[in-house]
Design a protein around this nucleic acid. Structure first.
Lengths: 100, 100
DNA sequence: ATTACCTTTGACAATATTAGTCAACACATA
DNA sequence: TATGTGTTGACTAATATTGTCAAAGGTAAT
């Protein structure tokens, strides 16, 4: 399973950034970035986007994966997690087809 | 749209509990229950279940709605919320069919 | 019009969670 | 040795969540 953190780590390496350089570029402590890439700390959406920009990658899929992970994190232990997701999905679909 | 709070309010009234009585029965401050029923504060899963028990109702659907609301709350402003939900759903389905 | 309920409101304190800072470590390589 | 790499843990700061409390306003019966 490819987490957002690991995806961003790969992208960073391909883009030729060291952890420190990348951290400086987006103005966070290197320790935090290290932990985020390894899933020890959560990303924020803003950081995901900033990093994607730094690595010259489209951020859409990364953001989707980021949000998905966030949701899964709070449902994974839930007996009715899947059912809840389906209910939520219906609501969002309804919302999207109608008003806004 | 019928929120968990409003559902629980209806159940409470049908069961003949005043806000105070219900709050005392599950050992929380009446102010909190009032706010929760009206959506001004979030429920916890434990309270949803306790209230369902108090009102002699099966809690499964309530819990599902509760979780769904929680998820929607953090996705509703997101451009890619629906896509994220679908990704999360696939992961959960995969997990459920396989190992655990 | 006061007593006895009910629900709502807002201000505040207590707690828990999350985010950020920093220094040091271990490893590799020039 | 000196420089660059990533990782770790302890600590503080900031923010969010929860809990407590007192008071207000409503309704109804006496």
């Amino acid at each position: 399973m490819s987490t957002v953190g690991l995806q961003l780590r790969e992208l960073r390496e391909k883009a030729g950034f060291s952890l420190r350089k990348a951290a400086v570029a987006i103005d966070i402590d290197v320790a935090i970035l290290s932990k985020m890439e390894r899933g020890e700390r959560k990303f924020s959406k803003e950081l995901v986007i900033k990093l994607a920009e730094l690595y010259k990658t489209n951020s859409d899929k990364l953001v989707i994966d980021y949000l998905s992970e966030k949701v899964l994190y709070e449902l994974e232990e839930e007996e009715f997690g899947l059912e809840a997701l389906k209910v939520a999905e219906k609501q969002l679909e309804y919302k999207r087809t109608n008003n806004k």
